[in-house]
Design a protein around this nucleic acid. Structure first.
Lengths: 347, 347
DNA sequence: ATCACTTGTGGGAGCGCTCCCACGGTACCT
DNA sequence: AGGTACCGTGGGAGCGCTCCCACAAGTGAT
């Protein structure tokens, strides 16, 4: 690897001169165009290697009007990002799928208003080719901003049944059903449900699954057995206290998240209810906490890593589609991945 | 905010036309140059607002040869990044210091060889103005690569006393001293030390602090009481087992990390030694685990968030310095921040 | 009135690439 | 033989900015 005489980094032009070809040809080789003869390609590749040529991203971005970067936007403060295994799993999947691409991943937190302001600015400057949106609430204005700026985006967890953005989700409805069916099969009849945040579509779908699993098995749904939570541990404690007071005869609890189940478990123990003998418990997420609970928690596993991979997949397709023609096919793409019930001793 | 007639995003030129000034003047206003009259500045700012102008980063990067981005390079797999509070605290400090800057932060993992390859490519392309390096081992080639590419960099934790890169560190020597002095003050006399990874400079400094605190207090250093660990829990168990076998009369343990202390604690309990009655225990990091241990662990707190802030500070200075002149002052900048002993009931 | 600065401003040149048109060469038809 | 088609290739134009030189107008000393 030789240093270019100019002292700086070698340019396309210099590579072309060295290989004895034109600028256009080098560009074609760099970008893997098939319209180059093998001999020429080899010569150019040799010159690239000799000079240690690396394309200037800024120049490319300017000329081609693309950035080769995508953003993973997390509308939460850093703290939650690190605390919840959801994000790290998602990141793993995203990273894996991106690793044999030229695309660069940016991680952007938009927890505070300040940060959201900056994000809006960032998107307006079109500094990324596409956006991955995770954990978005029903009333979040971000998706609309993205649509207005015409930036390709994929959302994890649609905001509603009418979601217009491309989305990847796990089967919340089916996951909830399997949890309830499992409890029914174990002979439980008074199954309570501590829900997630009601403004999250996925939480609604879990409630639907809970209801219909009971109905389809020929049981009436007792609304008293449904208590709203918010995915947190504290919410689980609160809801469980409420439920015990209202329905002391319950014999099972299906919680919308593992941490919620952990909160519920504390209250149950303090009330002298044994798990699973007196009250069976099923959580959601199959996070690390599920394995470490006492007793280990039965939980609905979502294929989060796989979701990350699919999101990238869809996003890259959308970016590619948008490039040459305006292929406004506009078929709504919604991917739903299956969940799996992981049975442990809490049920 | 009006859309530019061309359909795309407005350019500097269009803003200039609208404000009735030249391109250069708009550029000056955008970049906050003082050499613009108030009236002109106001006119330009109005035009910017009306058109909703946002500078094109790629064009700027190309023309000015800078990217306005810096990378936080983590030479570990994602998993460790999420597991250790060290990183999230660091990120918090970094983010805070960067928040009133135009600089963009990129998070880059370089755990696998594959990822390192990509990183090298990335740096060679000069896609960032500077690099923050955390948790680097003594034999890591990354710092040299950075030096060779002449990319400003700041390292957290120097690799050795001869570190050439600008560095920010906490006072490992002083932290260790304070831990040992605390144990001495509590009347302990047979104080063992489970070290960190020996190829980490900070771990060496802690050993130095341990030794000199004993010596300065007039005690001989018994080398049998020093057992190498590796910062992990498993390492703590192993080392503690070793120590108990070799020196059954020890009455205190200073561990180089909280997780190591947790490992040691398990072994001590299994051996029937009470903490703190029989064996006092002090950890390092003051991480969440310290607060949640049974009994709560006395630990040396490092101001990690502050370290993150200082690192950014130094890096931005270095980037700014490099821009116009080649101010090879080359005074080695090494910042060392004080630690604090957080006393709990384990000692 | 002249000169020497300073201040604010306009606009040319150029950053390194991609896009695309044009051109010579070969191959295959009529 | 001429015509048509398609390769592979060279290089002009232009992406939107910053840098810097040139210049007009103002200021104050001589």
């Amino acid at each position: 690897m030789v240093r270019s005489r100019s002292g700086g980094r070698p340019t396309l032009e210099e590579v072309a001169a060295r290989a004895g070809v034109g600028r256009g040809t080098v560009s074609r080789v760099i970008n893997g165009s098939p319209r180059v003869s093998d001999a020429t390609r080899a010569a150019v590749e040799a010159a690239v290697a000799e000079l240690g040529y690396v394309p200037n991203t800024a120049a490319r971005a300017l000329a081609a009007n693309r950035t080769d970067a995508i953003a993973l936007v997390v509308p939460e403060p850093e703290t939650r990002f690190f605390a919840e295994p959801y994000f790290s799993d998602m990141l793993k999947g995203v990273g894996a799928e991106l690793s044999d691409t030229e695309m660069q991943l940016l991680l952007i937190f938009a927890g505070s208003d300040r940060e959201r302001q900056r994000l809006a600015q960032y998107l307006a400057a079109h500094r990324v080719d596409g956006v991955l949106l995770v954990s978005v609430h029903a009333d979040d204005p971000l998706p609309d901003l993205l649509a207005q700026l015409e930036i390709p985006a994929v959302i994890s967890g649609p905001r509603s049944a009418q979601e217009t953005l491309t989305s990847v989700d796990s089967d919340n409805y089916g996951g909830a059903r399997s949890a309830v069916e499992h409890l029914l099969a174990r002979g439980r009849r008074r199954i309570a449900h501590i829900t997630g945040r009601l403004d999250v579509y996925g939480a609604q779908r879990r409630i639907d699954g809970y209801r219909e699993a009971l109905r389809d098995a020929g049981h009436a749904v007792d609304e008293d057995l449904i208590e709203p939570g918010d995915f947190t541990e504290e919410g689980g404690r609160r809801a469980m206290t409420e439920l015990l007071a209202r329905c002391p005869d319950l014999d099972a609890v299906f919680a919308a998240s593992d941490v919620t189940a952990a909160g519920a478990r504390q209250v149950l123990r303090e009330a002298g209810r044994r798990t699973p003998e007196d009250v069976a418990l099923v959580g959601y997420d199959d996070s690390a906490i599920a394995r470490h609970m006492e007793p280990p928690l039965t939980s609905v596993r979502q294929p989060i890593e796989e979701m990350g991979r699919r999101m990238i997949d869809l996003l890259l397709t959308e970016i590619a589609d948008r490039r040459p023609a305006v292929s406004r096919g506009l078929e709504r793409r919604q991917v739903v991945l299956a969940t799996e019930l992981v049975e442990r001793t809490s049920s």
